[in-house]
Amino acid sequence: METLVAIVLLTFLAIVAVGIIVLRDLLGAVILLGLYSLIAAGAFVVMDAVDVAFTEAAVGSGISTILFLGALSFTKHEQKPRGNDSVMALIFVIVTGGLLIYGTLDMPHYGRADSPAQSHPDLAVRFIEVSGSEVGPPNIVTSVLASYRGYDTLGETLVVFAAGIAVLSLLGLKRRRPEEESPEDAPGDTPGVKPDDVQSQY
């Protein structure tokens, strides 16, 4: 049953991915990306990764969609049509994908309980068996995330912080004063509107 659900969700993902490729309207593509994340989050639940599903739903289809919409609201919504697609890129992608598929040929099959990843005595097995008595929290993911691999999470926090100050420096948090405002009009604005008028519109 679970595998069946996983297959159905994978098919959904494939359909959405095709939609993202062919859609020229960026707004639509962004919404589809959010949908993609949401379906992926559903699939993560099926595969027992509840924490990951939670995060993917909150971040992939929540925050990141908002960021995309924020960026799109003052750039163009439409991707310009282009002639033929790049053949080189296609070849590169096919070669890369072929290599990956070759690599999976002798990989442990989906769901196997005796694969190296599942049976490593110092990682997976130890975390499942003794994290409750060594660290405490019933949620093993929390134990591993905050204690066994707490240093990774420290790095993760640094990445978030880096993104924060990057946006701070690139965009700023305060509303720019009219004289600092860029001369370009965003789509949807009447061209040639003076900054004062723009202010009063809101």
Binding site: I63, I66, L67, G70, A71, S73, F74, A163, G164, V167, L168, L170, L171, G172, L173, K174, R175, R176, E181, A186, V198
Partner: peptide, 11 residues
């Protein structure tokens, strides 16, 4: 929230 402010306060 900073990300939101950053993207929302440009105009």
């Amino acid at each position: 929230i900073s990300l939101f402010y950053g993207f929302a306060s440009k105009r």
